[in-house]
């Protein structure tokens, strides 16, 4: 009643082909999946599209499939389904862990993983876990499909790799063996809040040396980011609390936080270090390496 949404033409599709045809033909449109972000953006007039394409009933994009060495998630999979999925919990727990800290149950029942990615908020909470899982995205159009790494998907706030006639169809997650991963979010309260910073990390260790390290953050740059400085500093190093703490400090080289109503840039910078540290320690703990540091 109090927020006047712009007038638009509404198109509902039930198959991916229909959807692709429409995005190919129409100009000036927005795609609605769960709607939890888009309807808000329409309310605050961030977008005033002429057309809305409702893809929420494209059932063929709602799935979680375990293919052994990879998991495929349809872009229209609801966030709560990801939290509840035994497949995700077993093979990509860090994603379930991050998604469970997103929004509220009511929102997770509507919002989709594809929607969270395509909305391209700097605070997208599905991004850090997908970054550290080296996930890939399948983008489709009437012309065909292409696969892009999730780290190449975000171009800026609300800007993505998607061409005008493309849709995100699937998220492909390689299953990591012997890796520890974790996701931590810091907000202004304990629940249901936008991130001040969120971090996900993934580590592999062999011979007590870091064999692989992946660190990703949101809310500290125009897009979610990986933290190569931290990763490079650790790979090949002996696993120790000191190494983790020293390397975590380097995260400031990989981020460009701003001040806004939620937090100052300084605080975000400092918290990026703390959360990176905490998440790395937790990830190590998940592969049986408890280094302390929680004194």
């Amino acid at each position: 009643m109090f927020y006047k949404l712009p007038r638009f033409n509404y198109y509902r599709v039930t198959s991916l082909n229909e959807a692709l045809k429409l995005v190919n033909e129409l100009e000036d449109f927005k795609v609605v999946a769960g709607g939890t972000d888009l309807v808000m953006d329409l309310k605050i007039k961030r977008y005033i599209p002429k057309n809305i394409i409702d893809i929420s009933r494209v059932k063929e994009l709602d799935y979680i499939v375990d293919e052994g060495d990879k998991i495929r998630i349809g872009a229209l999979t609801r966030l709560q389904e990801i939290v509840d999925s035994p497949i995700i919990r077993e093979k990509a727990y860090v994603l379930a862990e991050a998604v469970n800290q997103m929004a509220s149950w009511q929102i997770r029942n509507m919002a989709t993983i594809g929607g969270n990615l395509c909305n391209a908020s700097p605070a997208a909470d599905t991004a850090p876990p997908l970054y550290v899982l080296n996930a890939e995205l399948k983008l489709v159009s009437v012309e065909g499909e292409r696969i892009v790494p999730v780290t190449k998907f975000f171009h800026g706030p609300r800007k993505t790799e998607l061409k005008k006639n493309e849709l995100l169809a699937e998220i492909i997650i390689p299953v990591e063996k012997d890796a520890g991963a974790s996701a931590i979010k810091l907000g202004r309260r304990n629940a249901f809040t936008l991130s001040i910073v969120a971090v996900a990390t993934l580590v592999k260790v062999s011979d007590n040396k870091f064999a692989d390290v992946r660190v990703a953050l949101n809310s500290v740059a125009p897009t979610p980011v990986r933290a190569p400085s931290v990763e490079k500093a650790l790979i090949g190093k002996e696993v120790s609390l000191e190494a983790v703490e020293e390397a975590s400090k380097l995260v400031v080289n990989d981020i460009k936080p701003i001040s806004d109503v939620r937090a100052s840039a300084d605080y975000r910078r400092e918290m990026s270090i703390v959360l990176t540290r905490d998440s790395l320690l937790r990830s190590l703990e998940r592969i049986g390496l408890k280094l302390g540091g929680e004194e």
């Binding site: 709607g35 929102i107 029942n109």
Partner: peptide
């Protein structure tokens, strides 16, 4: 504004009527 949509709790303020 919570309602149950197909049995699940959702916010009715973020759902377009045609959905």
């Amino acid at each position: 504004c919570t309602v149950l949509l197909d049995g699940k709790p959702v916010y009715s303020c973020t759902i377009l009527a045609p959905m």
